[in-house]
Protein backbone atom coordinates (compact mmCIF):
# COMPACT_ATOMS: atom_id res chain seq x y z
CA UNK A 1 0.00 0.00 0.00
CA UNK A 2 1.24 3.44 -0.93
CA UNK A 3 0.85 6.41 1.41
CA UNK A 4 1.02 10.06 0.39
CA UNK A 5 1.77 12.58 3.14
CA UNK A 6 1.40 16.35 2.76
CA UNK A 7 3.73 18.50 4.82
CA UNK A 8 3.71 22.24 5.24
CA UNK A 9 6.53 24.62 6.11
CA UNK A 10 5.38 26.92 8.89
CA UNK A 11 6.75 29.11 11.65
CA UNK A 12 8.23 27.08 14.50
CA UNK A 13 5.54 26.61 17.15
CA UNK A 14 7.74 28.08 19.88
CA UNK A 15 8.03 31.39 18.09
CA UNK A 16 5.59 34.15 18.90
CA UNK A 17 4.86 36.00 15.69
CA UNK A 18 4.74 39.75 15.38
CA UNK A 19 2.56 41.75 13.10
CA UNK A 20 4.37 44.07 10.66
CA UNK A 21 4.22 47.75 11.55
CA UNK A 22 2.30 48.54 8.35
CA UNK A 23 -0.31 45.87 9.20
CA UNK A 24 0.06 44.10 5.85
CA UNK A 25 0.95 40.69 7.32
CA UNK A 26 2.93 39.01 10.04
CA UNK A 27 6.70 39.45 9.94
CA UNK A 28 8.43 36.21 9.02
CA UNK A 29 11.90 37.62 8.23
CA UNK A 30 14.58 35.60 10.01
CA UNK A 31 11.96 33.63 11.89
CA UNK A 32 12.70 29.97 12.57
CA UNK A 33 10.65 27.75 10.29
CA UNK A 34 9.79 24.10 10.78
CA UNK A 35 7.55 21.30 9.65
CA UNK A 36 3.97 21.90 10.85
CA UNK A 37 3.59 19.79 14.04
CA UNK A 38 0.47 18.04 12.74
CA UNK A 39 2.29 17.17 9.50
CA UNK A 40 5.12 15.66 11.52
CA UNK A 41 2.53 13.44 13.20
CA UNK A 42 1.24 12.53 9.71
CA UNK A 43 4.73 11.46 8.62
CA UNK A 44 5.21 9.45 11.81
CA UNK A 45 1.90 7.63 11.26
CA UNK A 46 2.93 6.70 7.72
CA UNK A 47 6.30 5.45 8.95
CA UNK A 48 4.59 3.32 11.59
CA UNK A 49 2.28 1.84 8.95
CA UNK A 50 5.38 0.95 6.97
CA UNK A 51 7.07 -0.60 10.00
CA UNK A 52 3.93 -2.69 10.59
CA UNK A 53 4.19 -3.93 7.01
CA UNK A 54 0.92 -2.23 6.05
CA UNK A 55 2.50 0.48 3.89
CA UNK A 56 5.13 -0.27 1.27
CA UNK A 57 6.03 3.21 0.08
CA UNK A 58 5.74 6.70 1.57
CA UNK A 59 5.75 9.73 -0.70
CA UNK A 60 5.83 13.18 0.87
CA UNK A 61 4.73 16.30 -0.90
CA UNK A 62 4.94 19.99 -0.09
CA UNK A 63 3.75 23.01 -2.01
CA UNK A 64 5.60 26.28 -1.87
CA UNK A 65 8.90 28.02 -2.54
CA UNK A 66 12.21 26.16 -2.74
CA UNK A 67 12.74 26.41 1.02
CA UNK A 68 10.00 23.88 1.69
CA UNK A 69 12.44 21.24 0.44
CA UNK A 70 13.93 21.48 3.95
CA UNK A 71 10.69 20.14 5.42
CA UNK A 72 10.56 17.42 2.77
CA UNK A 73 14.10 16.42 3.78
CA UNK A 74 12.99 16.34 7.42
CA UNK A 75 10.19 13.94 6.46
CA UNK A 76 12.61 11.81 4.45
CA UNK A 77 14.91 11.66 7.49
CA UNK A 78 11.97 10.45 9.58
CA UNK A 79 11.45 7.57 7.16
CA UNK A 80 9.58 8.67 4.03
CA UNK A 81 10.93 7.18 0.80
CA UNK A 82 10.77 10.03 -1.68
CA UNK A 83 9.64 13.59 -1.99
CA UNK A 84 7.81 15.86 -4.37
CA UNK A 85 8.00 19.62 -4.18
CA UNK A 86 5.44 21.61 -6.10
CA UNK A 87 7.35 24.80 -6.76
CA UNK A 88 5.41 28.03 -6.49
CA UNK A 89 6.09 31.41 -4.96
CA UNK A 90 2.44 32.38 -5.10
CA UNK A 91 0.17 32.73 -2.08
CA UNK A 92 -1.65 29.44 -1.74
CA UNK A 93 -5.01 29.20 -0.05
CA UNK A 94 -6.23 25.81 1.12
CA UNK A 95 -8.35 25.21 -2.00
CA UNK A 96 -5.33 25.77 -4.24
CA UNK A 97 -3.26 23.38 -2.11
CA UNK A 98 -6.09 20.84 -2.29
CA UNK A 99 -6.25 21.12 -6.10
CA UNK A 100 -2.49 20.57 -6.37
CA UNK A 101 -2.73 17.61 -3.98
CA UNK A 102 -5.55 16.13 -6.03
CA UNK A 103 -3.36 16.28 -9.13
CA UNK A 104 -0.52 14.59 -7.24
CA UNK A 105 -3.00 12.00 -5.96
CA UNK A 106 -4.07 11.22 -9.52
CA UNK A 107 -0.48 10.74 -10.63
CA UNK A 108 0.68 8.74 -7.61
CA UNK A 109 -2.52 6.78 -6.89
CA UNK A 110 -1.87 6.24 -3.17
CA UNK A 111 -4.27 4.18 -1.04
CA UNK A 112 -4.06 6.55 1.88
CA UNK A 113 -3.35 10.27 2.08
CA UNK A 114 -2.40 11.68 5.48
CA UNK A 115 -2.39 15.39 6.26
CA UNK A 116 -2.24 17.49 9.40
CA UNK A 117 -5.63 18.60 10.72
CA UNK A 118 -4.53 22.21 10.63
CA UNK A 119 -1.50 24.31 9.87
CA UNK A 120 -0.47 26.35 12.90
CA UNK A 121 0.04 29.52 10.85
CA UNK A 122 -3.28 30.07 9.11
CA UNK A 123 -5.14 27.69 11.46
CA UNK A 124 -7.51 26.94 8.58
CA UNK A 125 -8.27 23.27 9.12
CA UNK A 126 -9.50 22.84 5.54
CA UNK A 127 -7.03 21.24 3.16
CA UNK A 128 -7.65 17.56 3.88
CA UNK A 129 -11.42 17.90 3.69
CA UNK A 130 -11.17 19.88 0.45
CA UNK A 131 -8.87 17.30 -1.11
CA UNK A 132 -11.28 14.53 -0.09
CA UNK A 133 -14.21 16.37 -1.68
CA UNK A 134 -12.34 17.12 -4.91
CA UNK A 135 -11.12 13.55 -5.26
CA UNK A 136 -14.47 12.05 -4.18
CA UNK A 137 -12.83 10.26 -1.24
CA UNK A 138 -14.01 9.59 2.31
CA UNK A 139 -12.24 11.38 5.15
CA UNK A 140 -11.27 10.71 8.73
CA UNK A 141 -10.43 14.08 10.22
CA UNK A 142 -8.84 14.82 13.64
CA UNK A 143 -7.64 11.23 13.92
CA UNK A 144 -6.37 9.85 17.20
CA UNK A 145 -6.15 6.26 15.94
CA UNK A 146 -5.87 4.72 12.48
CA UNK A 147 -6.17 1.01 11.74
CA UNK A 148 -5.89 -0.28 8.22
CA UNK A 149 -7.38 -3.68 7.48
CA UNK A 150 -9.15 -5.42 4.61
CA UNK A 151 -9.35 -2.47 2.27
CA UNK A 152 -10.67 -0.13 4.94
CA UNK A 153 -9.27 2.41 7.32
CA UNK A 154 -10.92 2.53 10.73
CA UNK A 155 -10.34 6.00 12.08
CA UNK A 156 -11.07 7.20 15.62
CA UNK A 157 -11.74 10.92 15.57
CA UNK A 158 -11.45 13.49 18.34
CA UNK A 159 -14.80 15.28 18.24
CA UNK A 160 -16.24 17.92 20.58
CA UNK A 161 -18.22 15.48 22.67
CA UNK A 162 -15.59 12.71 22.86
CA UNK A 163 -14.49 10.14 20.29
CA UNK A 164 -16.12 8.87 17.12
CA UNK A 165 -15.03 5.93 14.99
CA UNK A 166 -15.71 5.70 11.26
CA UNK A 167 -14.80 3.09 8.64
CA UNK A 168 -13.53 4.48 5.36
CA UNK A 169 -13.22 2.67 2.06
CA UNK A 170 -9.73 3.05 0.63
CA UNK A 171 -8.42 5.20 -0.86
CA UNK A 172 -9.15 7.66 1.91
CA UNK A 173 -7.94 10.92 3.42
CA UNK A 174 -6.90 11.10 7.07
CA UNK A 175 -6.03 14.26 8.99
CA UNK A 176 -4.06 13.96 12.21
CA UNK A 177 -4.81 15.20 15.69
CA UNK A 178 -2.19 15.65 18.39
CA UNK A 179 -2.69 12.35 20.14
CA UNK A 180 -2.36 10.09 17.10
CA UNK A 181 1.28 9.42 17.95
CA UNK A 182 4.44 11.00 19.25
CA UNK A 183 6.86 11.64 16.40
CA UNK A 184 10.39 10.27 16.70
CA UNK A 185 13.52 12.34 16.31
CA UNK A 186 15.50 11.89 13.14
CA UNK A 187 18.88 10.27 13.80
CA UNK A 188 22.01 11.74 12.29
CA UNK A 189 22.62 8.77 9.95
CA UNK A 190 19.01 9.07 8.75
CA UNK A 191 19.44 12.79 8.16
CA UNK A 192 22.51 12.00 6.03
CA UNK A 193 20.65 9.24 4.19
CA UNK A 194 17.71 11.57 3.53
CA UNK A 195 19.95 13.83 1.48
CA UNK A 196 20.30 11.09 -1.11
CA UNK A 197 16.64 10.14 -1.31
CA UNK A 198 14.89 11.22 -4.51
CA UNK A 199 13.11 14.58 -4.52
CA UNK A 200 11.21 15.60 -7.66
CA UNK A 201 10.29 19.18 -8.39
CA UNK A 202 7.08 19.89 -10.28
CA UNK A 203 5.23 23.06 -11.11
CA UNK A 204 1.50 23.77 -10.94
CA UNK A 205 1.60 23.87 -14.77
CA UNK A 206 3.01 20.32 -14.85
CA UNK A 207 0.04 19.31 -12.74
CA UNK A 208 -2.43 21.27 -14.87
CA UNK A 209 -3.55 23.46 -11.98
CA UNK A 210 -4.02 27.22 -12.20
CA UNK A 211 -3.65 28.91 -8.83
CA UNK A 212 -6.44 31.31 -8.05
CA UNK A 213 -7.95 32.72 -4.91
CA UNK A 214 -11.19 34.41 -3.95
CA UNK A 215 -9.71 35.72 -0.71
CA UNK A 216 -7.72 38.90 -0.32
CA UNK A 217 -5.92 39.80 2.83
CA UNK A 218 -6.81 43.40 3.68
CA UNK A 219 -4.84 43.74 6.88
CA UNK A 220 -3.32 41.90 9.79
CA UNK A 221 -3.42 43.41 13.25
CA UNK A 222 -2.21 42.39 16.67
CA UNK A 223 -5.02 41.13 18.91
CA UNK A 224 -6.31 43.33 21.70
CA UNK A 225 -3.71 43.01 24.45
CA UNK A 226 -4.85 41.89 27.86
CA UNK A 227 -3.50 43.97 30.69
CA UNK A 228 -1.74 41.87 33.27
CA UNK A 229 -3.74 42.20 36.46
CA UNK A 230 -2.65 41.95 40.04
CA UNK A 231 -1.27 39.26 42.29
CA UNK A 232 -3.42 38.48 45.28
CA UNK A 233 -1.80 37.46 48.54
CA UNK A 234 -4.27 34.86 49.74
CA UNK A 235 -7.33 32.81 48.87
CA UNK A 236 -9.41 35.19 51.00
CA UNK A 237 -8.26 38.16 48.95
CA UNK A 238 -9.01 36.26 45.75
CA UNK A 239 -12.55 35.44 46.87
CA UNK A 240 -13.10 39.06 47.95
CA UNK A 241 -11.94 40.39 44.54
CA UNK A 242 -14.03 37.90 42.58
CA UNK A 243 -17.13 38.79 44.60
CA UNK A 244 -16.82 42.53 45.00
CA UNK A 245 -14.53 43.83 42.25
CA UNK A 246 -15.06 41.48 39.30
CA UNK A 247 -18.54 40.43 40.48
CA UNK A 248 -18.27 37.07 38.70
CA UNK A 249 -19.17 34.79 41.60
Amino acid sequence: MKVLVAVKRVIDYNVKVRVKADNTDVDLTNVKMAINPFCEIAVEEAVRLKEQGVASEIVVVSMGPKECQEQIRTALALGADRGIQVQTDEKLDSLAVAKLLKAVYEQEKPDLIILGKQAIDSDNNQTGQMLAALAGLPQGTFASEVKVEEGKANVTREVDGGLQTVALNLPAVVTTDLRLNEPRYASLPNIMKAKRKPLDVKTPEDLGVTITSTISLLKVEPPAERQAGIKVGSVDELVEKLKNEAKVI
Partner: peptide, 22 residues
Amino acid sequence: TTTGKNVMPRVAALLDVDQISD
Protein backbone atom coordinates in the same frame (compact mmCIF):
# COMPACT_ATOMS: atom_id res chain seq x y z
CA THR B 1 -17.13 22.96 15.94
CA THR B 2 -15.64 19.62 14.99
CA THR B 3 -18.82 18.95 12.96
CA GLY B 4 -18.68 22.26 11.10
CA LYS B 5 -14.93 21.96 10.52
CA ASN B 6 -15.42 18.48 9.14
CA VAL B 7 -18.20 19.33 6.69
CA MET B 8 -17.73 22.91 5.49
CA PRO B 9 -14.36 22.68 3.67
CA ARG B 10 -15.91 19.87 1.61
CA VAL B 11 -18.85 22.12 0.79
CA ALA B 12 -16.48 24.90 -0.25
CA ALA B 13 -14.45 22.56 -2.46
CA LEU B 14 -17.61 21.20 -4.11
CA LEU B 15 -18.64 24.80 -4.88
CA ASP B 16 -15.07 25.64 -6.01
CA VAL B 17 -14.67 28.50 -3.54
CA ASP B 18 -12.25 29.18 -0.71
CA GLN B 19 -13.52 28.82 2.83
CA ILE B 20 -13.06 31.40 5.57
CA SER B 21 -12.47 29.59 8.84
CA ASP B 22 -13.36 30.53 12.39
